[in-house]
Structures are given as structure tokens and as C-alpha cells.
Simulated assay, not measured.
Amino acid sequence: MLKAALDELWNEGYKFSLNVYFTPTELSPYMNIHGRYSYDELEAIMDETDLLICPSVWYETFGYTVLEALSFGVPVLVSDTVGAKDIIPDDCGKIFTDKEDLKNIIKSLKTSELLSWNENITKAKIAFDVKNMVESLMNLYMER
């Protein structure tokens, strides 16, 4: 979904780059391919990241990629199938439904909006706490 949306935007004349930390099967001119990274490199990678896009087409449980991005102040765009969508404040990123929605959001993004999201993230109270999540899940299981 992400590649299809970005290919269309690139062909429409939009200029951007996408850092990819694996080797895709099909390359596009806007891609900067990096190898796998170690957790020690995560801070440096996030410091160079303007926006994290998490475009899952399958329903997912809560993954940590979105939370890690937010912890470094990086705004996020996530598909509505990503479990972490539930913790994204409206002023720190956006949720998209499909390729066209993703394209339209990217087209409308301004540097000032990304900077505002970044500032909001640093002030936000993200509604996620591992301890409370585990306790809630344990209580749920015990009820059954």
C-alpha cells in the first residue's frame, strides 16, 4: 500500500525520500535502502525521521514501532488496522483507511503541521502503560 501510494505521488511530481530498513523486492527512485539496524541505532534513526508511516493491510495487535516513534517525538501515520492507532492523539498523527486516504494525507501535509505534531507529542500524555495493560489483560482472562 505504501509503495503504491508513494509511486503515484512520485509520478505526480512530488519529491521526497523514504528510508527503508530492509531490501524491498521492487525499488523506486525515492527509496534509501538501509540494512537491518540494531536497537542501539534507533535513536539516531528516529532523529533523522520526519514521519513514521505504518501501513499494515492486516489487523495487528499492539506493536511497539509506533510507540517507539512517539517516544522520540516522531509523528505517525498509521492504517486503521494497526493496534497502536488507539493511542495516537489527534494532534500527533493521523489514521488512514486505504491507499487513497494515505495519498491525500501525505499530499496535504505541511512542514508546519509536522513540527506542530512533534511539539504536541513531546507534551502529550500517551495513554499507554505496560503494567496497566498487563493487569487489564489478566483481569479480562480471569473473568472468562
Rank of each mutant, 00 (worst) to 15 (best):
M1R: 10
M1A: 05
A4S: 11
A5E: 05
L6A: 01
D7K: 05
D7C: 03
E8D: 12
E8I: 13
L9P: 03
W10T: 01
W10K: 01
W10R: 10
G13W: 02
K15A: 13
K15M: 10
F16S: 02
L18Q: 08
N19G: 07
V20G: 04
V20C: 00
Y21I: 05
F22M: 12
F22I: 03
T23G: 05
P24E: 04
P24F: 04
P24D: 04
T25G: 08
T25M: 11
E26Y: 09
E26C: 07
E26F: 14
S28G: 04
S28R: 08
P29F: 04
Y30N: 02
Y30E: 03
Y30R: 13
N32E: 08
I33C: 06
H34W: 01
H34Y: 00
H34G: 04
R36W: 11
D40H: 15
L42Y: 08
E43T: 10
A44S: 09
M46Y: 09
E48H: 08
E48S: 14
T49G: 05
T49Q: 04
D50R: 11
D50W: 13
L52G: 06
I53F: 01
I53D: 01
I53M: 05
I53L: 01
C54Y: 12
P55L: 02
P55G: 05
S56C: 11
V57S: 13
V57G: 15
Y59T: 13
T61H: 10
T61L: 14
T61C: 10
F62G: 06
G63H: 12
T65A: 14
V66H: 00
L67H: 10
E68M: 02
E68F: 06
E68S: 01
L70D: 08
S71E: 10
S71H: 07
S71Y: 11
F72I: 01
G73T: 09
V74S: 00
V76F: 00
V78F: 00
S79P: 07
T81C: 10
T81F: 15
V82H: 03
G83N: 06
I87M: 04
D90E: 08
C92H: 13
K94I: 12
I95H: 06
I95T: 12
D98V: 12
K99I: 12
K99F: 03
E100C: 15
E100M: 15
D101Y: 02
K103Q: 05
K103P: 00
K103M: 04
I105H: 05
I106R: 11
I106L: 14
K107F: 00
K107D: 02
K107H: 00
S108H: 05
L109V: 00
K110T: 10
K110F: 01
S112Q: 15
S112C: 13
W117P: 03
W117E: 08
N118M: 08
N118R: 13
N120L: 08
I121Y: 05
I121P: 08
I121D: 07
T122D: 15
T122H: 15
A124K: 04
A124V: 08
K125Q: 12
K125L: 10
K125I: 12
I126V: 04
I126C: 00
I126S: 03
A127W: 12
F128E: 01
D129F: 07
D129Y: 02
V130A: 13
K131Y: 03
N132M: 09
N132T: 15
V134P: 03
V134T: 14
S136P: 02
M138G: 09
N139E: 10
N139S: 13
Y141N: 06
E143H: 11
R144P: 03
